[in-house]
Write a protein that binds this DNA or RNA. Structure first.
Length: 211
DNA sequence: AACTCGGGGCA
DNA sequence: TGCCCAGAGTT
């Protein structure tokens, strides 16, 4: 399979594929990405557009405090633990990083509430680092196409970096997410209208079910 | 690798 | 009600 050909087709299919989280600084992207876990980006944007009107820095968030932050973001799921993590992360950014968001994967994933996925989103979108963030969509789409056969998101990340040219890592992440949300859905994927089905192992194996 | 956590929205 | 959503942390 030619991965570049596949990505070319996805770029034509989803010309607007990009990060849809609302932010203007690395710190804001970090907060928005932490909030986006198990929560739709539409709902996250609703919360952050209000939140970032008044609060933009780690200092602002520490002063805001866990309790009030929890109230503000309660319209987005998981607010208790997320609020706690966001305040603790803000404190660490203040005490260890002069209020800045670090630019290495290792430093980022040591922040509370930040895993590989969130760290890679921040690195690739805010700092222009070549990285692939593996979320549920990227994981599912990669498995269905047949690029990977692992159950481990970290293995998936390394395999994708091996197969996809470095310059396209970040773009591939967004293309797979758009494809996963709009077409290659976890339930009832729309294989008939899929523009890359000729490359897809899942489609080949289930071809009989689509006629 | 396999849980658990967590809340709003929609069927 | 039951299931899903641009995961992380713990066991």
């Amino acid at each position: 399979m030619d991965i570049n050909e596949l990505l070319d087709i996805l770029e034509k299919t989803y010309p607007d594929a990009k990060c849809e989280l609302h932010y203007t600084t690395p710190f804001e992207l970090l907060i928005a990405t932490i909030l986006s876990a198990q929560c739709t980006d539409v709902r996250v944007n609703k919360v952050t557009s209000k939140l970032f009107e008044k609060y933009n820095t780690p200092k602002d968030f520490v002063e805001l405090g866990e309790e009030r932050l929890g109230n503000i973001i309660k319209s987005c799921g998981l607010y208790k633990s997320k609020s706690n993590n966001i305040i603790n992360t803000s404190k660490i950014l203040l005490s260890r990083y002069f209020g800045q968001v670090p630019q290495t994967l290792e430093e980022l994933i040591n922040l509370p509430g930040v895993g590989r996925k969130t760290a890679n989103v921040v690195l690739s979108n805010a700092y222009g680092v070549d990285a692939i963030a593996v979320d549920t969509h990227v994981f599912r789409v990669s498995n269905r196409i047949g690029i990977i056969s692992s159950k481990n998101p970290e293995d998936t990340e390394f395999k994708l970096m091996e197969v996809i040219p470095k310059k396209r890592w970040s773009k591939a992440h967004h293309l797979f997410i758009f494809h996963g949300r709009r077409t290659c859905k976890s339930q009832n994927p729309n294989c008939i209208d899929c523009t890359i089905k000729c490359y897809c192992k899942y489609f080949k194996e289930n071809r009989g079910n689509f006629n």
